[in-house]
Design a protein around this nucleic acid. Structure first.
Lengths: 341, 341
DNA sequence: CTGAAAGCGCTTACAG
DNA sequence: CTGAAAGCGCTTACAG
């Protein structure tokens, strides 16, 4: 079969050198902007490279340099809403430089994770970022790896590892301070699965902050349930019945908050007039379409990804570090917490 | 500074050969399961490899074989809900084999896309999948590339390219057939931005299907707007006022459908008793938490990604192909379209 | 300023 | 069954 327009073999330095009538050594220097090349020669080489659409083979270069300029992103579940922004932040930080990113989704399976790990090490990535989908600490990848690793969102259980995550306790504080600043004093906390470290930490932050103001959560405790609208609706109804004077809701997710908003509206309560509601995650699609639009805590997950990438860069350059770095959240105000006049 | 536990240099075949007391050639054969090696020698080599945690350098191997076993996934926006499932499907199809995936997010910027393309070609990927976030055809990557390319979700404008996308016209048919089978005859279509090819195609499919049954859309046309809950609510209210006998809603997205459901409930209409509602995207978080739970069209996007990966595999193996392959959608029934008794 | 040679880590004929 | 040699595509001292 003749070559009928199928993809052409990629041009090589030797092709370029031959076309320009020089040695590969000279071609290499010309293309890489080394000083010791006559201008006229350089021009000839560059023209040949251009005509052949020459793209230097990064594999060959990496083999020499002992660095590939690649990094592995190992995620436990791509589906999860939390991994994606972290990935995007990391991809962004790397993309700006010259590094390419391998994406591996272990789908929550430790075997699969090890399999991907082997592949990445074989490909000689310069480093790894392990992205989790929950803030619960996770077991480290394994023994001493030949490249640095940074854990993002889900920190490593091992204190010598490097982890970047979000400050959930402080997030609880932020949410409560915001409701307090709206003039609320009877604040309920409706949140998700108690098994999630994030749920516990945010509740702890909320509790401590109220205590420091001489207050406590309505009902004397956080109400744990599931991360769903249905739970939010049910909880709102129940709380309204038992604590008629509740004037603020701190919700563990925007889904829960959507349910709470529906429950309150259907009970005839006015948000933000009678009651303030704050959600968590700042999930645009849910928050911006809520009635009223929902104030929410944003975890700055892209920032978590970016910082993880920066720490990894530093480690690749030899700056060893360890421990868990907790980044602050921020509040995005919308209509559901307009301050009481 | 002494080497105090920092990452160790990765072991090389030479290290293994030396430890086993054989040549690198023999070590290579032993490790790769070639026949011509004495059992005892093979055992010695494998043990050495094990002790050194030897992982063969894939770069060196790729350089020889002229194939890297890597593929580039070029997405236009990671944020979009539609890219992610396609990516997951592709990652899944590749991950099962032995290929690693480079992820590049062009963020909708053509310059950035070209930049990533150059990097990927330099790294000698065996092929590329270009994942779009809308079904509107897009300009191809550029001239004759040295590796095969498959466009996923957003097809290429060039007929010689290979594209895999979803069948939007047929999706419109599916939705309408489903509502008809629920006993509905007065069906309205509330959908998103008319600029989106997907919105037009689904509307066309709906119109044709109704026509083939001697029916037409309520109001004589599709109602285009935005992909939001707010638009769904507003449209439901308006349609109810103008066409009191409407008994079915085909919505262009689950967000729109959520708005429609809220609008209908607040107008005192019973879903699915009086009116059936079907959404689009089968976005679990929205559909499963709707009141009532929302029947929705699923685009099988993971399947789009998987098929794109398969087509790419075939092309890498020399099977040239071209044209747009349109995969069918499917309906996921929930409570909002229980058949009328 | 230019080029021959060595080498990154591996595999594959080819001798022995 | 084992090993010396060549080579994938490139870069970097080192001569000339």
């Amino acid at each position: 079969m003749a070559d009928d327009g199928g993809p052409a073999r990629a041009a090589t330095l030797t092709d370029v050198a031959r076309m320009a009538g020089v040695s590969t050594a000279t071609a290499s220097k010309a293309i890489n902007g080394r000083a010791q090349v006559r201008a006229e020669t350089r021009a000839r080489v560059l023209e040949a490279a251009e005509r052949l659409s020459f793209a230097p083979n990064a594999l060959a270069r990496s083999l020499l340099e002992g660095r590939t300029g690649t990094v592995g992103l190992l995620t436990s579940d791509l589906e999860g809403r939390f991994s994606i922004p972290v990935l995007m932040g990391a991809e962004d930080a790397f993309g700006a430089g010259q590094v390419s990113v391998f994406l591996c989704d272990a789908r929550g399976d430790a075997i699969r994770e090890q399999h991907h790990l082997r592949a990445l090490l074989s490909r000689r990535v310069d480093g790894l970022i392990v992205v989790g989908s929950r803030t619960d600490p996770r077991p480290p990848l394994g023994g001493s790896l030949p490249v640095p690793v940074v854990y993002a969102y889900a920190p490593s259980l091992h204190p010598d590892d490097m982890s970047v995550t979000t400050d959930s306790v402080d997030a609880g504080r932020l949410a409560i301070e915001h409701l307090l600043s709206c003039g609320r004093r009877r604040i309920a906390h409706v949140t998700g699965d108690i098994e999630h470290r994030a749920a516990q930490d945010r509740a702890a932050g909320a509790r401590e902050t109220l205590a420091s103001h001489g207050l406590e959560l309505v009902g004397g405790r956080a109400f744990f349930g599931s991360w769903s609208e249905g739970w939010g609706r049910a909880a709102a109804r129940t709380l309204l019945e038992r604590f008629d004077d509740v004037d603020g809701f701190f919700c563990g997710s925007d889904q829960i908050a959507r349910g709470v908003l529906d429950g309150l509206r259907e009970a005839g309560r006015d948000v933000p007039g009678d009651i303030s509601v704050i959600g968590f995650d700042n999930w645009e699609v849910l928050a911006a379409n809520a009635r009223p639009q929902l104030t929410s805590v944003d975890m700055n997950l892209e920032q978590v990804g970016r910082v993880a990438a920066q720490r990894l860069f530093a480690a690749i350059d030899g700056e060893r570090a360890s421990g868990v770095e907790e980044l602050p959240c921020r509040i995005v105000t919308r209509e559901s917490t307009l301050p009481v006049a």
